[in-house]
Each structure stands twice: as C-alpha cells, then as structure tokens.
C-alpha cells in the first residue's frame, strides 16, 4: 500500500523546505508519494534539483498565487 505524505513548509525559508523534504523521503517507502507545499521561491527551484540528486521521480510542480506544490515519487524497488 503506498502512502501519500504531505510536507507543509509554507512560510519556511532555506534550508527548511529542503531539510523537511529530505526527512519525509527518509521516512517513506518505495512507491510512496510526497507532496511538498510551500511559498519560498528559491526552494521551488532547489527541491526538483535535490529530487534528481536523490534518484527520485519528480511527478510535477504546480503553482498558484505564490504557493507551489511539488509532487515526488519514491521509486519502486527493482
């Protein structure tokens, strides 16, 4: 069963969005989806880059009214 984990970093600034995303990734299992919600512009650029570095799958980035939502999938084990 895959879980959907929500990371709320609204109002948080560097490095917190990145740090909280990493914490959520560590607690997740293969197949889980993580949704990070924030409004710090720099983190909107940073987190997708970290997703690539960590070998995870970027499902999408949505933005509305200054708030962004980044969806990440933990790859299934081969």
């Amino acid at each position: 069963m895959t879980k959907s984990n929500r990371v709320d970093v609204l109002g948080e600034t560097c490095p917190v969005p990145l740090v909280e995303t990493r914490k959520a990734v560590r607690k997740s299992s293969p197949g889980d989806i993580i949704e990070v919600i924030g409004n710090h512009p720099e983190s909107k650029e940073e987190i997708p880059m970290a997703v690539e570095e960590l070998g995870l799958e970027l499902l999408g980035i949505e933005e509305e009214g200054g708030q962004w939502k980044i969806r990440i999938k933990i790859p299934e084990e081969d």
Partner: peptide, 11 residues
C-alpha cells in the same frame, strides 16, 4: 549548520 543540513538533504 545550513551547509551541513543542506548537504545531508541532498543525500
């Protein structure tokens, strides 16, 4: 501390 946690966050 910021660089350290940043590096950890990048895996």
């Amino acid at each position: 501390l910021i660089i350290g946690t940043g590096a950890l966050s990048m895996g």
